[in-house]
Simulated scan of single mutants.
Amino acid sequence: MPLVKNGQIVADDFVTVADDAELPADGAILVSAARFLADAETLTKSNRPLGVVWPNNRDVVELKPWLDRLALIALVYPTYKDGRAHSQARRLREIYGYRGELRATGQVLRDQFTFLVRNGFDAFDAKKETDAHAFREATHRYTEFYQPTGDGHLSALQLRKQRHKAATT
């Protein structure tokens, strides 16, 4: 499956490790929430990039003690109608200050791509090559937004105020 990260289609550096599989000797690994929570102390002490697949029915506050040691959090969209991962992403970015990779995975519709970016996702695990290209384009499509979020973009109102202030000084 193609991975889009920061607006570019890239190779995935993370290897997904099943719950009952042995960990590879080195390299970036992606484990399930169950495996992570069962052995978080050991997993976070290893000197390798670590990621966790976090279901949308678990509270992200459970990850708070380890956020500085997680290189990747993959938030799951089990169906396109279930948007709880949007809220999880915003909480991770805006409340807990998570700066690692936030990856959307699962059933995401194309008209949700811009919302993924606005809510703090910087990567998307696409099911189809055409979706990967569409997501890449969506990351650059809009430059002004009405709604404020924690993605670093100023809202349209904030931009208007800046322009007005610059014009009057």
Rank of each mutant, 00 (worst) to 15 (best):
residue 126 A to Y: 08
residue 61 V to Y: 00
residue 79 T to D: 03
residue 122 D to N: 15
residue 69 R to F: 02
residue 84 R to A: 08
residue 113 F to A: 07
residue 47 N to H: 07
residue 44 T to F: 11
residue 61 V to S: 00
residue 71 A to H: 05
residue 90 R to I: 12
residue 46 S to Q: 14
residue 50 L to R: 07
residue 54 W to C: 07
residue 76 V to Y: 00
residue 45 K to A: 14
residue 95 I to F: 05
residue 106 G to F: 05
residue 87 S to W: 12
residue 82 D to M: 11
residue 89 A to Y: 07
residue 65 P to R: 09
residue 103 R to M: 12
residue 87 S to C: 13
residue 111 D to T: 14
residue 69 R to C: 08
residue 110 R to P: 05
residue 104 A to L: 10
residue 52 V to G: 04
residue 125 D to G: 06
residue 72 L to G: 01
residue 97 G to Q: 04
residue 49 P to T: 14
residue 122 D to G: 09
residue 103 R to K: 14
residue 127 K to I: 14
residue 124 F to G: 00
residue 106 G to K: 08
residue 118 R to T: 15
residue 95 I to G: 02
residue 92 L to E: 05
residue 119 N to D: 14
residue 58 R to N: 01
residue 71 A to V: 02
residue 81 K to S: 09
residue 89 A to K: 03
residue 86 H to N: 06
residue 80 Y to H: 09
residue 62 E to A: 07
residue 118 R to Y: 14
residue 126 A to I: 11
residue 66 W to H: 03
residue 100 G to Q: 13
residue 110 R to M: 07
residue 112 Q to L: 09
residue 74 A to W: 02
residue 90 R to K: 13
residue 105 T to P: 00
residue 50 L to Y: 11
residue 98 Y to P: 01
residue 43 L to R: 05
residue 40 A to P: 02
residue 81 K to D: 01
residue 92 L to C: 04
residue 113 F to Q: 10
residue 110 R to K: 09
residue 101 E to V: 15
residue 123 A to L: 08
residue 59 D to L: 08
residue 92 L to M: 04
residue 49 P to A: 11
residue 66 W to S: 05
residue 46 S to V: 13
residue 82 D to E: 12
residue 84 R to P: 03
residue 46 S to T: 15
residue 91 R to D: 03
